[in-house]
Each structure stands twice: as structure tokens, then as C-alpha cells.
Amino acid sequence: MAPDVPPPAPPAPGPDSPAPRPVFDGHNDLLLHLWQAGDATGRGFFEGRAGHIDLARCRAGGMAGGFFAIWVPGQHGLPDAGAGLPPAFPPLGPDRARVVTLAMAGILVRMARARPDAIRLCTTAAQVEAARAAGAIGAVMHLEGAEAIGPDLAELEVLHAAGLRSIGPVWSRDNIFGQGVPFRFPSGPDIGGGLTEAGKRLVAECDRLGIMIDLSHLNEAGFWDVAAISDRPLVATHSCVHALCPSARNLTDRQLDAIAERGGVVGLNFAVQFLRPDGARDPDTAPDLLARHLAHLVDRLGEGGVALGSDYDGALTPRAVGGAEGLPVVIAAMRAAGFGEALVNRICWENWLGLVRRVIG
């Protein structure tokens, strides 16, 4: 997650266009922007808004499900990942984190309650499939950075009861659970220490509750700590390939091999600075670069371990892709790269749903 103002979106498909292929997306930051706009009911999602995601864009592009992130911004600037070493992000106060986390969770709950024909809060793979069958988006609540949770983990129980089923213990800043990987380029992810004792308890409790652990913003030491503690598949909801773009936020081949061994999944991040070999934040990035990262992921993870994790509303995406209405552009890039229809289906939908079924229920 690294919020940006996206460039103008490409036009949505017309009314005579064929129905788009259903996509389950591994990460978006819609709730952050609704909260920042003071939109407690999610009205902008239903009626149209600036950014990457609203109901019309999702329907035009085929976005039928995904992990909807809760991310609490701090009182600081945001990273420019293409400009060398960004500033360190100070820790986030727990009181602010709890208030904002509950506010964003409330937005998602209200949206699903008000318009179940359009979006549903889902806690199982079967519920996601049922939402898709009914023409609604199946939304799984995700927490990106666990600052709202105290060391006794009491808040985790409350959030789980509210529908939380996925959590990244850290964003790219330190908290009581561990150290996040900073936005450095060029750099490897082996920066700083791993999980704290509280972080190790958090991972174990998430395993018990059936909450998926997201490795996307953890540094390498934290990655290996999760691999040692958890017996679940290893998952990165929105990450790219370090061998193709040497950003600290990207996964090395050694990490990808570990994810493969555990039957995990990586959702490809659409952020241009994590795709491009030069790490530049340039929206004039060709969509075929996404296909190149996907091909590398397939090579390391197998056809069952690769999915999409756009980071919509939290990233600068290729201009040709834009927001959710541009998902068919990504699919066209896969086909142009020689991906067969069965593999495209797995990347767009089946791999995430299989992972949700195995980890969450």
C-alpha cells in the first residue's frame, strides 16, 4: 500500500462488450479513501468516485471478489519508492489505530448491509462463490498492519467476530509485532529484525482462528519467522518479483520457493515501481510487464500459486490498466504472453478461492 493519485482511467467497456472474466483481487485500499472522504456509508462506491474502484468499474472489469484492506495512515508523508531511500515511518499510536480501524471496518459492514445485491462481507470461500453467483462482490476483510491490536490480542477476537479473515502483521513501519520492509530501491528485503514475541503469538493465534497471514510488507527475517511458526500456506497478497525489479518490497526467488513448498499463493501487485526494472514511478508502463512477472511467478510457484493483487486505490498502476475496469487489459496481456485459458482462470479466480478455502474455510 502506497497511496497515489491515479492517472485518468481508460474508458470502460461499452454495453455491447462481452461479459468480463470474473476476478478475485488480492488487495485494494478502497476503505481508506472512503474514510478519508468522510463517507461512512460507502455511498461513493455505489454512485461513482475518483480512484480505481467503484461498483460500475468493478462490474465493467469483472472484479467479483477480493481482500478489502484496512490501512491506517500515520501523520507523515508517503513514500516515493522510485527515489532511493525514503524516510523511516514513525510508529503509529495504538489509540488512533483502533479508532480508524473500527471506522473502516464499519464502512465495509454498512456497505454490505445496505446493498447485498452489490457487495457482501464474506468469511468463507463458499460465501464468496455465493456472492458471485448472485452478481455481488465477495469482500473479505483484511487488516494491513496490526497497530490496532494490543499485545494481549483481545482486539483480534473482536475483529474476527466482525469478519476479519486476513491480516498483515506489519505495514512498512515497525510495530509491537515486528518490522516492516521499507520502500527501498535498489535493495533486498533482508532489512532489520524479525517478529517480536508478541508477533509470534499473533501468528499462532491467527492460525488457531483461521485468519490468513499476509507476508507482503514483512521484511525477510519476519517472513522466515512466519514460515517457522505457522503450518499454513505462505501468502503474499500484493507483491512482485525481486529478480525482475530489485525493490525491497519484492520477493526473492528463495522466498518464492518457500511459498511454493508450502502450497501458498502470491498476488501480483500492479504498482509500476515494483514492476519496472528501473523502479520508476512511471504510469507509461506497458501491461506486458505484468505478464513477465506472472510468468516468473508461475515458473517458481507452479500454476496453482499465482494470482492477482492489484493494490488498487493504493498504487500508481500502468496507465493502460487504470482501475478495476482495466482488468481485461491484464488478462489480454496474459493471453498475449501465451497463457492458456485454464491458467488465466486459475490466476484470475481459482487460485485465490482455493487458498481461502484451505486457510479460512
Rank of each mutant, 00 (worst) to 15 (best):
M1Q: 11
V5G: 10
P11L: 06
A12S: 15
G14I: 14
G14S: 14
P18Y: 02
A19Q: 12
V23K: 02
N28C: 15
L31V: 09
L32E: 08
H33I: 10
W35L: 11
A40I: 14
E47G: 08
M63Y: 07
M63C: 11
A64N: 03
G66N: 06
A69S: 13
I70N: 08
V72A: 09
Q75I: 15
H76E: 12
G77S: 06
G77N: 03
L78T: 15
A81E: 14
A81L: 11
P87R: 05
P91E: 15
R96M: 12
L102T: 12
L102E: 15
D117E: 13
I119P: 06
R120E: 07
R120K: 09
C122M: 06
T124L: 09
A125N: 02
A126G: 14
Q127V: 05
A130L: 08
A130V: 01
A130G: 08
A130W: 06
A136S: 12
H142P: 01
L143W: 07
G145A: 08
D152R: 13
L153D: 08
L159K: 06
A162P: 11
L164G: 07
S166W: 00
I167S: 10
G168C: 07
P169R: 11
V170D: 09
S172N: 06
F177T: 05
G180L: 07
V181D: 09
V181Q: 06
P182I: 14
P186L: 03
G192H: 01
G193F: 11
R208E: 08
L209R: 13
I213T: 06
D214K: 00
D214Y: 03
S216P: 00
H217P: 00
L218S: 13
A221T: 04
F223L: 09
F223R: 10
D225F: 05
V241D: 02
V241E: 02
A243E: 09
S247T: 13
A248M: 02
D253P: 12
R254I: 14
Q255T: 00
A258E: 07
G263A: 02
V266T: 01
G267M: 01
L268W: 02
N269K: 04
V272A: 04
V272F: 05
P277D: 04
P277K: 04
P277L: 07
G279L: 12
G279S: 10
A280G: 13
L289G: 05
A295R: 11
L297V: 05
V298Q: 05
V298C: 08
D299N: 08
G302L: 03
E303Q: 10
G309Y: 00
S310F: 12
P318M: 10
V321A: 07
G322R: 04
G323F: 02
P328W: 00
V329A: 02
V330C: 10
I331W: 00
I331F: 00
A332E: 08
A333F: 12
A337E: 06
F339M: 13
N345V: 14
R346T: 04
W349H: 12
W349A: 07
E350Q: 15
L353P: 04
G354K: 10
G354N: 13
G361H: 04
